[in-house]
Design a binder for these strands. Structure first.
Lengths: 340, 340
DNA sequence: GTGAAAGCGCTAACAC
DNA sequence: GTGTTAGCGCTTTCAC
C-alpha cells in the first residue's frame, strides 16, 4: 500500500556520489560547496526519483523540527482563522510549519495537545489561549522554550506577547457612545479568568471615568464565556436586575451578538432602544442584523507579528521582551445611534 | 535557551534497566511484556524527569508519523473550521495528529504545502480542495498513499470521499421556492473548475425539470469563485442582462451573501423582491440580514467521517471504496417568502 | 522478563 | 570539492 520512499542514499548511488554530497547539493545553504555540474546532476536525479527529504530524520539529526506549535481556544470562533492565517503566512516565508491545536479551553485537551506538540519537538509555541492561569504557559516557560503569547500577556514575567490595545479600544467604544449622547452605558465583561476580559473591564471603568460618566453598581455584568449564549444570558440578567441603560459595550462580538437575541426576546430593538458595541470586528460582523459597530483589530497582523517574534526568538536566540500592543480603531456601523 | 530534552536512555539509566525495557513499559501495546513492578518504577522515573517521547525518532524507526495532512482551500471560509474540528476530534481519538494547510486555491501554495506534508511523512491525506483538475490529488494517488476527499469526489477512479448530497440539497432549495409560488428561479453557479459547482448546477437543472419549470438561457450565471464579491458580481450580471427572476439559488452561502449587497445596490429588497437560498448553512448564516434560508450540511460530521475513512485505510489497509454521500436538509429562514 | 545490537534517513565534523 | 564516519532517539528482532 504505502510505498517505500526514495532516500538520499539512493539518489547518491544513482548519481555515483556520496550521501553527504547529495545532502549538500540539495540544501540551499550548502549548495555552493558542491561543484555546479555535480549539483545539477544531483538535482536532476532527485527530481526524477521523486525524492522527498525526510524531515523526521533531518529533525532528529539537527535538533530542529522547523515547526511551531499553535494553540488556540476555538478554531470555530471566526476571530481566530485570520490570525492563524497571519501566523502561517509568515512562518511559511521562513520555512516553518505551524501545528495547530484547538482546545475548546478544555484543560485536558490543552494538556494532551501540549504533550503532542512537545513530542513533535516543535521549536516554539504561539499560545492564543487567554486564560490568566494557564498550565501550558507555565510549562512552556518552565522548559524555557521559545514562546509568544497572542491576544494576552502575563503581567510580571518577561514574555513576548502581541495584544490588541484593549483599553484604547474600549475607550473608543465608550467615547463613541458618549458622543452620541449616551450616559447610562452598561458593560458585558468577558470571563474573569481571561486577561482580555479583565483589561477590557478595567478599560471600561477608566473610559467612563474619563468621560465623567457614572458606573452604577450592577451595570457591569460578567459573562461566563465569550459566546453568544453567554452574551444573551448576561443581557437578560442586566434587564432582570432592573439596571437602566441605553447602550452596552460588549467585551467581544460574540457577546454582542448574544445581546441581539436577548433584546429581541424582550421586545427591544437595536439600535432604536439600545445601542450595542462589540470588540474584534470578526468576519461578517458587518453582515449581521443590524451591522455591528465594533472595535476593529487587525487580526491577520496580530498573527504575523506573533510569528515574527517567535522566529526571532528561535533563529536569533533573542531573549523575550515587552508585549507588543497593536493599534485598534472603531468600525462604526448600524448597531449604535444618537440618543434622542 | 532551548533545553536538551530527556531521552529514553536517560530514563533507563535512572531506573537501571535497558532502553528496550523502558520503551516496552511506556508503550501501551507492549507494557504487558514487562514486569509490573519494573513498569511502575519506569513510569515514575519518566514522570519525574518530565520525559517526552521523541516522535521524530519514533517515526523514523517505525515508518509511521501518526500524522495526517489536511489541505483545505481557505481556513477563513467559516464552512471549513467545523469540518477541521470534526477531523481533529476523530483523529485525536486514534492518536493521530492533523497537519493543516490552507492553500487559497493557489497552485503554488498547494504544491509547497503538499511537499511539506510529504516531507513530514504524513501517513495519509484528507483533501478538501474541490477543483476538478488537481495535481495534488493526482500526486497522492500516484504515490498510492491513503487519501480521502472531502466535499468532492472523482468520477472514475476508486477513491474514498465524503460529500454532501449536492443534488438532493439543490432539489430541496428549488422545491421550497416552487412551493412558495416561484417559477422564475435563477441559479448562481459555483466556479466550473469545482466539482461541487458542477454538481449543484446539474442538480439545479434536474430539480427545475422535475418541477416542470423552465430554465431560460442566461438564468444560470457562473460565479468566478465561492466568494461574496463573486456572488455580488454575478447577480449584477444577471440583473444587467435583463433576465427576469423572482428567486435565486446560490451555490453556496458566500455567493448568497454577495447577492444581498447587489440587491441593496439596485434598490431591491430580500425577500420582498427577490428570495435567496444558499448552500452549506455556514456559521452565523442565521444572523445575517435577513437570516439566510440555506441547505444545511453537517459540517462536523463530514469531517469526522472523512477521518474515519482515512484511519481505516491507514490502520486496516482497507482499499478505498465508494464515495459516502451525507444527507442534507433545508434550513428555512427569512430570505425566502411566498410570491404574491 | 530483559538486554544487546542494529538501523530508520539524515547532517556535520573531520579528513583528504 | 568530496567522502568517511558517527550518531541524533527510538523500536525491534534475537538471544538469553
Amino acid at each position: 500500500m504505502t510505498p517505500t520512499r526514495v532516500t538520499l542514499r539512493e539518489v547518491a548511488d544513482a548519481v555515483g556520489v556520496s550521501p553527504a554530497t547529495v545532502s549538500r547539493a540539495l540544501q540551499p545553504k550548502t549548495r555552493s560547496l558542491v561543484n555546479e555540474e555535480t549539483a545539477r546532476r544531483i538535482e536532476e536525479a532527485a527530481r526524477l526519483a521523486d525524492y522527498s527529504p525526510n524531515s523526521l530524520a533531518r529533525g532528529l539529526k539537527t535538533q530542529r523540527s522547523l515547526s511551531v506549535g499553535v494553540m488556540i481556544p476555538d478554531l470555530t470562533n471566526p476571530l481566530f482563522p485570520p490570525m492563524v492565517r497571519g501566523i502561517q503566512d509568515r512562518l511559511e516565508q521562513h520555512g516553518y510549519t505551524a501545528l495547530i491545536v484547538s482546545t475548546d479551553g478544555d484543560p485536558e485537551r490543552e494538556r494532551l495537545g501540549f504533550e503532542a506538540l512537545r513530542a513533535q519537538r516543535v521549536d516554539g509555541f504561539i499560545l492564543a489561549t487567554a486564560r490568566a492561569k494557564h498550565p501550558v504557559v507555565d510549562a512552556v516557560m518552565a522548559a524555557s522554550m521559545p514562546l509568544v503569547l497572542l491576544n494576552r500577556a502575563v503581567q510580571d514575567a518577561k514574555v513576548d506577547a502581541v495584544v490588541p490595545d484593549d483599553r484604547g479600544g474600549i475607550a473608543l467604544a465608550v467615547g463613541h457612545l458618549a458622543d452620541l449622547g449616551h450616559e447610562r452605558i452598561a458593560h458585558l465583561a468577558g470571563p474573569k479568568e481571561t486577561t482580555s476580559g479583565r483589561w477590557r473591564r478595567e478599560g471600561f471603568r477608566a473610559a467612563m471615568r474619563g468621560r465623567g460618566l457614572k458606573v452604577p453598581a450592577g451595570s457591569i455584568r460578567q459573562a461566563g464565556a465569550f459566546t453568544e449564549r453567554a452574551g444573551h444570558d448576561a443581557l437578560i440578567g442586566l434587564l432582570d436586575a432592573g439596571i437602566p441603560f441605553t447602550a452596552v459595550v460588549a467585551a467581544n462580538d460574540l457577546l454582542a451578538l448574544g445581546t441581539y437575541s436577548a433584546l429581541a426576546e424582550r421586545g427591544l430593538r437595536c439600535p432604536d432602544d439600545v445601542s450595542v458595541v462589540g470588540f474584534n470586528d470578526m468576519p461578517f460582523a458587518d453582515r449581521f442584523a443590524p451591522p455591528l459597530t465594533t472595535v476593529h483589530i487587525p487580526q491577520h497582523e496580530l498573527g504575523s507579528r506573533a510569528a515574527d517574534l517567535l522566529i526571532e526568538q528561535v533563529a536569533e536566540e533573542r531573549p523575550p521582551g515587552q508585549p507588543v500592543v497593536v493599534d485598534v480603531k472603531l468600525a462604526v456601523r448600524s448597531s449604535t445611534r444618537r440618543l434622542s
